[in-house]
Amino acid sequence: MVGYFFLLCFLQLIGEAIVYLFDLPIPGPVIGMALLLIGLIIKKGLPEGLDQSTGTILRYLSLLFVPAGVGVIQHFELIHDEWLPITVSVVFATLLTIAFSGLLMKLMDRANG
């Protein structure tokens, strides 16, 4: 468990280092995710311990959003001032994206046979 937790942190660390060295506009953890995925593909197998460790972290993923979400108290003024564009954008863009992506996937899959 500790070993796999170290692996996750270490891959993020490498990700951050790559971002810094190559001046990339991509967040470090995303590079870490790509590295882990490539590693698993090369290794052709998922160690049970890694599956369990990541399962535990991802099960409580919602909890990890809370501190950032509370940041809303710093933005009350902005949200109050711009509630219309924010609400309409969040609601309609999200639902339009769902409809667009669903229809596109359906059409592409049909074309693919």
Binding site: F5, L8, C9, L11, Q12, G15, P27, G28, P29, V30, G32, M33, A34, L35, L36, L37, L40, I41, L46, L50, D51, S53, T54, G55, I57, L58, L61, L64, F65, A68
Partner: peptide
């Protein structure tokens, strides 16, 4: 959140 993002590679795999 950082290590959790790295962990997202597992369901993807």
């Amino acid at each position: 959140l950082g290590p959790a993002t790295v962990a997202l590679a597992v369901p993807l795999y």
